[in-house]
């Protein structure tokens, strides 16, 4: 029987749902608990294809890379995971691919960050280059607030305090969009509705079904191609002037709220896609 690996660190609803869906699609899921195993480079009896579901960014990219050394196809591969781990690398890749993104500036000292904010115009959003769930993402309405945020950042452990990423603040209509790409399919999207400008569902944003129109579908496919990724959750703003603008990209997306809000079984599509890839 076709074996497909599911690599994870914490077994959540998503990983169980994918494993069950793999069984329904004629494959035997091999659950790989990454916090209870080791991977010798270039060796080992692994399934030919492994779905990467690690919550930890570094474990996801490094374990994907280690498995790839043994000839395993990992979905997503180590490279797109590494790219999407870094908001600046992601913005750079998308910018080069001509994908609309918020105006973004990289600076390497607090002084230059303040100059950059003057160039973009306030309010600006200060982001760490790593991280998700909107953590450590902060809006500065003026120079005084940005100075305070930059001062605080210097003393926060774990944050790369050498690299400052600021973006223009986009006036969203009380929501943003999380759209899913699986292969060449764009099966579902949700609005993440919130009174707060940070809309992540893990931060209290409410998930509602969103329509995937042709423009959103094409944009999502372009992003996946630019990132070299098979499966993505893409965060999109609706800019009143420019239309869809891609904010961030997630290479190991959670989707339980999307399944609940849209009724669309993302896990089934992931399993079908994995089986199709493994049989190619």
């Amino acid at each position: 029987m076709l074996r497909i690996g599911v690599a994870y660190d914490i077994l959540r609803w998503e990983e169980r749902a994918i494993a069950d869906a793999l069984r329904r699609n004629g494959a035997e899921p091999q659950l790989i608990h990454l916090r209870n195993t080791f991977i010798e480079l270039g060796r080992g009896e692994w399934p030919e294809l492994v779905l990467q579901r690690s919550i930890s960014h570094s474990v996801a990219s490094e374990s994907a890379s280690a498995l790839e050394s043994a000839g395993v196809t990992v979905v997503n591969g180590s490279l797109p995971i590494l790219l999407s781990n870094d908001k600046l690398l992601t913005a750079s890749i998308l910018s080069r691919a001509g994908v609309p993104t918020p105006r973004t500036v990289a600076a390497f000292t607090p002084e230059d960050t303040l100059k950059a904010a003057d160039t973009i115009g306030y309010p600006v959003v200060l982001k760490p280059v790593n991280g998700s769930w909107g953590r450590m993402v902060a809006k500065a309405r003026d120079e005084e607030e940005l100075r305070a945020l930059l001062d605080h950042r210097l003393y926060v452990p774990g944050i790369n305090s050498q690299v400052f990423l600021i973006q223009e603040y986009i006036e969203k209509p009380g929501r943003d969009i999380r759209v899913f790409v699986i292969g060449e399919d764009v099966p579902a999207a949700i609005y993440r509705v919130s009174d707060h400008w940070i809309t992540n569902t893990a931060r209290g944003g409410r998930a509602e079904a969103a329509e995937v129109d042709e423009e959103l579908r094409e944009l999502a496919i372009r992003v996946a191609e630019a990132m070299g990724a098979d499966i993505l959750g893409i965060d999109v703003f609706e800019d009143p002037r420019r239309g869809y603008v891609v904010n961030e990209v997630n290479a190991v997306p959670e989707f339980k709220n999307t399944v609940r809000a849209t009724g669309h079984p993302i896990h089934e599509r992931i399993a079908e896609y994995a089986v199709e890839l493994a049989r190619r």
Partner: peptide, 11 residues
């Protein structure tokens, strides 16, 4: 005990 996994891929 579950270690705090600081990085994540939220929704």
């Amino acid at each position: 005990p579950l270690d705090d996994i600081k990085e994540d891929w939220g929704e």
